[in-house]
Each structure stands twice: as structure tokens, then as C-alpha cells.
Computed example of a mutant assay.
Amino acid sequence: MTEAELYSLYKGVYVPVLLHSPQSLKYCEDFRFRADDVLIVTYPKSGTTWMQEIVPLIMSGGDLASVETLHNWDRVPWLEENRACILNLEQRPSPRLFSTHFHYNMMPPGFFEVKPKVIYVMRNPKDVFTSSFHYYGMSSFLVNPGPQGEFLKKFLDGKVMFGSWFDHVKGWLNAEDKERIMYISYDEMIMDLKDCVSRIAQFLEKPLDSEVTEKIADRCLFKNMKQNNMSNYSAVPPELMDQTKSRFLRKGIAGDWKNQLTEAEVEQFDSVYKEKMKDVKYKFVWD
């Protein structure tokens, strides 16, 4: 099926119709934030599920029930997706935890008025592309990626769900109220998860002792998180996500793009990256 059949255009980017109804997008637009809300913001395939495991564990002081009793899409729901409308989020006690894939300039008015805390997770775009290629191939609600070269062109042009990775990252890096935003990368989490857990806890003003930090970091190692049926998307019907084609939580590594992209594709990617990111001062781990 084509983009016209599977996606709608919302604020200039594609969103999958199956997950984002006009009602859910309106719900997000009108959402009333609280100052102590915490938002996990990501471009798709950049570590959302991982952060949806880490943050509830930090907020609960390491209580495993926080990630073993609710599916990740209900424990840290996406504000723009259909389920947000039926979860009675207004009744949830503070601090509430949410996710979004929205670009900075797509955020609803209430976000800019209240200024809740944001954890913005970035990932090497070549790995985002690689993960996306497999994800699109197993998800019936996304346009089939087709040949890798064609999908790469779409990805670099931003003709994929939630638009351009480059625009997404640059928009959030240029956000106002940066003292309310923590920038962290998937790649940093791969390198030293315990340090990242500690830093996130400090940002959330939930300092943890060393033992609890270690416990959370161990629990959130990819190999361990993959076993959590509340996080590995095993409950999603195969007609929506065929995990015989590719696991939702696939490898959880940095640098898998080296196994995916051809030399010519790497050159193409690097050329576009250099041009699009030339004015960005932020020092990425993968640069």
C-alpha cells in the first residue's frame, strides 16, 4: 500500500493513520500539561522503548512492578496516538510520564505554556535508518520499504513517518528553555548505561544510590529488556507486526549500519548529513 493509503499529513509530516486518528491528534493538540510531567521525545527508532523502561524504573526507585504490570504504550503513552484518548491521562497522579515523536514545532500550545521536562533521545541516523528498514518491513501499517536504495532516498528526503530525522534533531536542539531538556543519545546508553541512568535520575531530581542505579542499569540491558513481554511488543497481533520477519527489539547495538549500507550508500548518506548538519554545533557521540 502507498503513503496516500496508509498515512495522513499532519503539520507537514506523515503519520500512520492506523495509530493517529484525527481524534487522537486533536486530543494531543488540546492536552493540558503539568509542570512536573516528563516527556520522552524521540525520532522513531531512536531508543523510545528503552527509555520507556528506564524512566519508570527511576521514578519508582527500582520497583520492577513499574515495568512488569503495564505495556510500555500504556505506562508511558504517546500523546498523539489513539490510546491516549482512552487512558484517562488527566486522572493520573503526578509526575506523569509521556512519549511523543513530534518535532519541536509540532508540539501543542500547552507544552510551550507549561514547559514540562523533556528527555530528548538521539541516535546515529545511519542506525535509525537500518532499524527503520527492518521495522517498515514487518509492520503492516507502514509503507513497505521496498529496495534499500529507494528507502534510503525516502529517508534522506524525509518522506517517511514523522518526516526528516535532520529536521527533528535540529528542531529540538534549537528548542528554548534548554534547562528543561536533557539531551542524551542511544549511543551513550550503549557505552555506559549505568552512568546514563545516574544522569537521567539527577535530571529528574530522583537521585538513586549506587545499588539501585546498578539494578536498573542491569534490568535495562537490551538482552534483559527483550525478555519483558510488557516491552517487547510480543502482545501486538502478527497481522500488525510480523515478528517472524524481524523482532521489534532486534539487536540493540550501535553501528549495525555497517552491516546494512553499501559503500555507495554510506557516501550518499555522509554527503547529505554533512550538508544538512553543517550549522549544528552539538557534539554527537557518533561524529
Results as ranks from 00 to 15, higher is better:
3 E>A: 15
4 A>H: 13
4 A>C: 09
7 Y>W: 11
7 Y>L: 03
7 Y>E: 03
13 V>G: 00
16 P>T: 06
17 V>F: 13
17 V>Q: 15
18 L>Y: 15
20 H>A: 08
20 H>Y: 07
21 S>C: 04
21 S>K: 01
24 S>A: 14
24 S>K: 02
25 L>C: 07
26 K>V: 03
32 R>L: 10
33 F>W: 11
34 R>C: 02
38 V>H: 05
40 I>L: 12
40 I>T: 02
40 I>E: 00
41 V>R: 04
44 P>G: 10
44 P>L: 09
45 K>G: 07
47 G>T: 01
50 W>P: 00
53 E>I: 00
53 E>W: 01
55 V>K: 02
55 V>C: 03
56 P>E: 02
59 M>N: 10
60 S>I: 04
67 V>L: 00
69 T>R: 02
70 L>R: 14
75 R>V: 00
76 V>W: 00
78 W>H: 10
78 W>Y: 14
81 E>D: 12
81 E>A: 13
82 N>I: 01
83 R>D: 03
85 C>D: 02
85 C>G: 03
85 C>Y: 02
87 L>C: 05
94 S>N: 11
101 H>T: 07
101 H>E: 06
102 F>V: 06
106 M>A: 10
108 P>A: 06
110 G>R: 00
111 F>A: 06
112 F>G: 09
112 F>K: 11
113 E>A: 15
125 P>L: 09
131 S>M: 04
131 S>W: 07
132 S>A: 15
134 H>W: 11
137 G>I: 05
139 S>Y: 04
140 S>H: 09
141 F>M: 11
145 P>Q: 07
146 G>C: 05
147 P>Q: 09
148 Q>V: 14
148 Q>R: 15
149 G>W: 05
153 K>S: 14
156 L>R: 03
157 D>S: 14
159 K>H: 12
162 F>N: 10
166 F>G: 11
173 L>G: 05
178 K>E: 09
178 K>Q: 15
179 E>F: 05
179 E>A: 10
191 M>H: 14
192 D>K: 12
192 D>A: 12
197 V>E: 04
200 I>D: 01
203 F>A: 03
204 L>Y: 09
204 L>Q: 08
204 L>C: 05
205 E>K: 15
215 K>T: 12
216 I>G: 05
216 I>K: 07
217 A>Y: 11
218 D>N: 15
219 R>V: 07
221 L>G: 12
223 K>G: 06
223 K>C: 11
224 N>Y: 12
224 N>K: 08
224 N>T: 11
225 M>N: 02
226 K>F: 08
229 N>P: 06
231 S>D: 06
231 S>K: 11
232 N>S: 03
234 S>H: 12
240 L>Y: 14
242 D>E: 09
244 T>G: 08
248 F>Y: 13
254 A>M: 11
254 A>R: 08
255 G>I: 04
256 D>N: 13
257 W>D: 08
258 K>S: 11
259 N>H: 13
265 E>N: 01
268 Q>C: 14
269 F>H: 02
269 F>Q: 06
270 D>Q: 13
272 V>A: 05
273 Y>I: 03
274 K>V: 00
275 E>K: 12
276 K>Y: 06
276 K>H: 07
277 M>N: 04
278 K>F: 02
281 K>I: 04
283 K>G: 08
285 V>W: 13
285 V>I: 14
